[in-house]
Computed example of a mutant assay.
Amino acid sequence: MNKKLSLLILCVLTVFISCNSSKSIVNTSKGPKLEKSLLWKITGKDIKKPSYLYGTIHLTCDYEFTDKLKKAFDETDRLVLEIDMSNPNLQMDMMKFIFMEDGKTIKGLLNEDDYKTLADFFKEQVGMDLKLFDKMKPLAITSTITAKMAVCDNGTAYDMEFMKVSKAQNEEVIGLETIADQMKVFDDIPYEDQLKTLVEMAKEGMEESKKGFEEMTRYYNAEDLEGLLKVTTEQGLEGDFQESLVDQRNRNWIPLIEKITAEAPTFIGVGALHLPGEQGVINLLRKQGYTVVPVY
């Protein structure tokens, strides 16, 4: 499977939308070696009661509300996600940023052959005409296609399931950033690069994409954050986009996480790729003097 394509898929699934690069690979796995766990307990400094940190994935066939997840939710009073998904205006806010500026279109950014390749693939996979997406940013196409990569008919997202639990427990939901924040980051990736990756996906076929999806979900289901980071590094996660899509956002979140967890015990769910590595949330919190340990 194409390295950049694998990375595109994983970023859609674990960071939120998409990323892509053709530059040199860097090692992002520095820092203390992490045990195999998606759930981590945060204590120390100004925290009076423990908070919890969980690495999510945005499409899975294997969601399970485990006993340790239930215990963590029972011990916390609020839910923190990358964005506040309880916001009633969320869909409207997303639509404000979904269209390309300066009159750019998908068809105008691709040559005739590549456009036909992508249009035929899109129609085959999602049953829709690509013309409907012509003025939308490539991430709209990416997100739509990615939803078809699950090998089951009832794929779900951890974020949405956590929202259900939070609502049932009448908990406050807080976002670490806004839709505008996220879209600004992803807009730094040239549309042409994003479309090039989508055309490669179309040429290779959905079966190749699904193989990459299955490889990455194996690491995720094994709760192996180190392995997940390693496979994305091998598949092309590159310096500039790693910095803007993951590392800088992690650093931005730390002061917010410190403030929120000092106020009340909190359950924090963010994309799994945000947790490991030298600039990962776990290591950054430890550098700030917190104790962050795996929950088994």
Rank of each mutant, 00 (worst) to 15 (best):
D77E: 14
L53N: 04
I189C: 02
R286I: 01
M95N: 13
V15N: 10
E82K: 01
A119G: 11
Y296R: 14
Q182T: 07
L284V: 03
L34Y: 03
Y219H: 02
E234G: 09
T233M: 12
M183Y: 11
G271P: 02
I254S: 03
P138A: 06
K137F: 04
K123E: 12
I145H: 07
K131N: 15
Q288R: 08
L90C: 09
N283V: 03
L90S: 04
T56E: 03
T217H: 13
M216G: 12
G31W: 02
D193N: 09
T266R: 03
V270G: 01
T291V: 14
Q91V: 14
F121E: 12
T117A: 15
Q91W: 10
T43Y: 05
L132C: 13
H58W: 03
L69K: 12
H58Q: 04
K123Y: 04
K211P: 08
M94P: 12
E101I: 11
E234I: 06
E263R: 14
M92L: 12
T14R: 02
D62H: 12
L118H: 07
F121H: 11
L10S: 15
S24R: 15
Q182S: 12
L7T: 07
K48G: 11
Q288L: 03
L225Q: 01
L7S: 08
E161F: 04
A222F: 06
E171P: 13
Q279V: 01
I106A: 03
L273H: 01
L256H: 05
D247N: 06
K131Q: 15
T146W: 05
N89S: 14
I83H: 06
N87R: 10
Q235A: 05
V281F: 02
A150N: 08
